[in-house]
Simulated scan of single mutants.
Amino acid sequence: MKQSTCIVLAALNMLIAVGAGAFGAHGLKAILSIDMLAVWQTAVHYQMVHALGLFGLGLLRAQWPDANLLGCSAVAMLFGIVVFSGSLYALALSGILWLGAITPIGGVAFLVAWGMLAWCAYRRQSSSFN
């Protein structure tokens, strides 16, 4: 994933997360149960954290243009946002409990994304690219 694409997707995800957080706090507070509101807020939290992760990956692409693993990490992080947060948003709004079974797939994508970033940084540290 290109640097500018990463940053655009990060900004859009932050925009969505801030809007979803405000919507949950104001628009859904009277509609959802406390448990489902907590599910909603978990989705918002993880979307925000990983949108910042995408932003960081975009910035790193400028510093390490030859590190293709950063692009793979960004794709995994975006996939994680869509699956993890998306399934929790859908669960909170619909009450369809089996959607919670999809959520861990997004969590694994987050782990893979952060692992790829760690591996990329480690490889750069131990190579002659310093």
Rank of each mutant, 00 (worst) to 15 (best):
Q3Y: 05
Q3K: 13
S4V: 10
T5D: 06
C6I: 07
V8F: 11
L9V: 03
A10K: 10
M14G: 15
M14R: 10
I16E: 04
I16H: 07
V18D: 00
G19K: 13
G21M: 02
G21D: 07
G21L: 06
G24F: 12
A30K: 10
A30F: 05
I31E: 06
L32V: 13
S33F: 04
D35H: 06
W40Y: 11
H45D: 02
Y46L: 04
Y46P: 02
M48W: 05
V49Q: 04
H50K: 02
A51Y: 01
L52C: 07
L52E: 09
L54K: 04
F55Q: 12
F55H: 09
L57M: 15
G58Q: 02
L59R: 04
R61G: 00
A62H: 04
A62P: 00
A62D: 12
Q63D: 10
Q63C: 12
W64M: 15
W64L: 15
W64I: 13
D66A: 02
A67W: 15
A67L: 14
A67K: 14
N68I: 11
L69M: 13
L70R: 13
L70G: 03
C72Q: 07
V75R: 12
A76V: 07
A76M: 12
L78N: 06
F79T: 09
I81T: 07
I81N: 03
I81F: 05
F84M: 14
F84N: 13
G86M: 09
S87P: 01
S87Y: 05
S87F: 00
L88E: 04
L88P: 01
Y89C: 07
A90V: 10
L91I: 09
A92F: 00
L93T: 03
L93K: 08
I96A: 15
I96V: 15
L97H: 12
L97A: 15
G100P: 07
I102E: 03
P104T: 07
G106A: 03
V108C: 09
A109Q: 02
A109T: 03
W114D: 03
G115Y: 06
L117Y: 06
